[in-house]
Computed example of a mutant assay.
Amino acid sequence: MAPSANPKSGIQPKSIPTKDVEPMAAMAHQGKALPGIPSFDSYAQQRQWQLEHMAGAFRVFAREGYAEGISGHISVRDPEFEDRFWINPLAVHFGMLKASDMICITVDGDVVGGNTEGSINAAGFQIHSSVHRARKDVHAICHTHSVHGRAWSAFAKPLEMINQDVCYFYKAHSVYSDYGGIANESSEGQRIAKSLGDGKAVILMNHGLLTVGQTVDEAAFLFCLMERSCQVQLLVDRTGLEKRIVSDEEAKYNFEMASTPDTLYVEFQPHYRYEEYLSNGDFKN
């Protein structure tokens, strides 16, 4: 069914495209699609690529102001061993992290590789291990105590579809409203994983945001987008004016066209390459 006209504005709505369109091809004029997630000849090559992009994501997070003391973590599942993931060391600023700083740990808590001299955030381990256990399709997880994410989390409400970009989370994010303090116990991590369900993101009441993806690029882009979406929501709500919500039909179309693993990977590449340019790629070491 086509959307109806708005009687207040007199604006006739545009029809939603109905024919099948490949999301990656639709991103560029005349279907000249950008390259998506790369493939690799070996686990070693893929592992190094993942660690470089993980470190690059931390540099982006540092520039965006997401660092807060020793809080915040990104994890990436090892490409060869399903029960292992890589995570950042405790008490190292996001803006200083390099690929060689990351620590490899099993979901049971055994450090098995990487920077074995580093410490791991206990709460971070509980959250990330629980999500990696629960979601075999998830290869990367981002969680920090970003400012606007924390502010919006106080309401324990999902984001509204008030603009095109937030539709990337259409029916794909949830709210964890059973805050249990710092997640030093496995039970808190398990409850967070359960609240995430099969979605792309969860708003943690009185805590912050958590996003997931098939690549660290996807999870990182979604985190940046969710943080900005929280900021936009707070700005819009502050006006007290009547909001116009994107229709379910339009929001669903936006989500299907822009929120695939490949498109979200591509969305992050300008951010990654800018950090690479600014630092001469030093985070890859």
Results as ranks from 00 to 15, higher is better:
D262F: 01
P23E: 05
P270R: 15
S15N: 13
A140L: 04
V21E: 14
N285L: 03
K200Q: 11
L225I: 02
L210I: 07
V216R: 08
S146E: 09
A44C: 07
Q231Y: 11
E82T: 02
A154G: 03
T215W: 05
N163S: 15
E22K: 15
Y179H: 04
C230I: 11
G181T: 02
A5E: 15
E276C: 14
D101A: 09
Y170S: 12
R59K: 10
G31C: 08
N163T: 07
Q231T: 07
L51I: 09
C167E: 12
I245Q: 13
T263E: 14
S119H: 12
S100I: 03
N285F: 04
Y265L: 01
Y272S: 05
K157Y: 04
S153D: 03
N121L: 03
Y272K: 06
C167S: 14
H173M: 08
H145T: 02
K200H: 09
M226S: 05
G281I: 10
K98A: 14
Q45M: 07
H145I: 00
I120G: 01
R238S: 13
M24R: 15
M1L: 11
F283N: 07
H271S: 10
H53N: 15
I127R: 00
V175M: 07
R63E: 10
A134T: 02
G240T: 09
P261E: 09
R135E: 01
E117M: 06
S130G: 04
P35H: 14
G118R: 12
G65I: 09
F221N: 10
P270C: 08
A99E: 13
A219R: 13
N285A: 06
H73W: 02
Y179Q: 00
Q126E: 02
M27K: 11
L90A: 06
D262R: 01
I203T: 04
G56Y: 04
S100E: 12
D101V: 05
C224I: 05
G31W: 13
A140P: 05
A57D: 06
T116Y: 01
V216D: 06
K19G: 13
H143M: 05
I182N: 01
P3L: 11
K200V: 03
A67H: 07
A220S: 15
Y253L: 08
E218F: 02
C142P: 03
G199K: 13
G113K: 04
F255V: 04
E80W: 09
S229K: 13
Q50H: 10
H143R: 03
D108L: 00
V131W: 00
L159A: 08
S195E: 02
I105T: 10
A2L: 12
D237N: 14
Q269V: 07
S153Q: 08
D83A: 07
A55D: 12
P7W: 08
A134Q: 04
L278T: 07
I203G: 01
P89D: 04
G31I: 09
A62S: 12
E68I: 03
E160S: 14
P270Q: 09
G240E: 07
A151L: 12
